[in-house]
């Protein structure tokens, strides 16, 4: 059980709901991953349309915690208004806050992010900020009221995996009591295991599962990797050494002359 801002989650894997081949595969992937929290979004509805209703009905049937996002927002105003609209529709104070600053890398506008986080925290939101691995930005986000941080490990959808292990390790070391969730850039289950071994509290991913040849199988694989990484972190891993150390006892070995 994983306590995230007072909510007990059965898994340390949070899952995005976009890009799946079909709603049925999305539902199966959610179940196979073992996740108990998924991200959702808001988009324009067509006049007379029912697309939103159908999707929302599917998500509610899964019985998972909802983490709405502000994906696609490029300004503080857009992000704040989208967050407020999401709270009305989804009935949760949780918001994954994205304020995008660059079209090519989709990296966050960290200045706008801090300002939007301040406004939303003052309005009683539980803000999950999609941020970089910059320690100073992280400190500012905590100062304005964020209680969890979600650094990227690589650009969204890139599948590169953790490109700056040192920065992630540093972040974990600087904020020992803050829930840290790696959000964006994971491509393989081994990537998820790696960041969990570093002591991150959870991972949030979407594309690596949704765009896999078999999303359900990949969801299951990521679920296992996240569990394995966490258990490894909790179990105390051996530090690397530069010399060989025999694993089989040398005492009592036969001597053949």
């Amino acid at each position: 059980m994983f306590d995230l801002l007072g909510t007990n989650l059965f898994s340390r894997l949070l899952l995005g709901t976009a890009q799946y081949p079909s709603p049925a595969i999305l539902a199966d992937a959610v179940k196979a991953s073992g996740t108990s929290a998924v991200t959702v979004s808001l988009r324009r509805e067509m006049a007379g349309g029912r697309a939103g209703e159908q999707f929302w009905s599917l998500i509610r049937s899964l019985g998972v915690k909802i983490l709405p996002n502000t994906a696609g927002c490029h300004s503080v105003k857009e992000a704040v208004t989208t967050a407020k609209m999401a709270r009305e529709v989804f009935g949760t104070n949780w918001i994954k806050l994205e304020v995008i600053g660059n079209h090519d890398t989709l990296q966050p506008d960290v200045f706008g992010l801090v300002e939007a986080a301040r406004i939303l925290c003052e309005d009683d939101f539980d803000v999950f900020p999609y941020t970089t691995d910059d320690l100073v930005v992280a400190e500012r986000l905590l100062e304005v009221g964020c209680k969890v941080l979600m650094p990227w490990c690589a650009p969204i959808g890139s599948a590169l995996g953790p490109v700056n292990i040192m920065a992630l390790r540093s972040m974990r070391g600087h904020f020992p009591g803050v829930p840290l969730i790696v959000d964006a850039g994971l491509g393989r289950p081994s990537h998820a295991a790696t960041v969990m071994e570093l002591g991150f509290d959870a991972v949030l991913l979407n594309t690596a599962i949704a765009r896999a040849a078999d999303p359900v199988g990949m969801a299951r694989a990521f679920g296992k990797a996240v569990d394995a990484g966490r258990e490894a972190f909790s179990s105390g891993m051996l530090e690397p050494r530069n010399v060989a150390v025999p694993s089989t006892p040398t005492i009592g070995r036969a001597v053949f002359l």
């Binding site: 995005g16 709901t17 976009a18 890009q19 799946y20 999305l26 991200t39 959702v40 979004s41 808001l42 988009r43 324009r44 509805e45 349309g49 697309a51 939103g52 209703e53 999707f55 929302w56 998500i59 709405p68 996002n69 994906a71 208004t81 989208t82 407020k84 609209m85 009305e88 529709v89 989804f90 969204i156 979407n206 594309t207």
Partner: peptide, 28 residues
Amino acid sequence: DLVHKANRAEFQLSDGDRIEILSPMQGG
């Protein structure tokens, strides 16, 4: 700016207003 569901009936529109009508959608 958000207009709460409960306030839509009395919210007076003006010429040139920009209205956004959003609904749940897949997201990452």
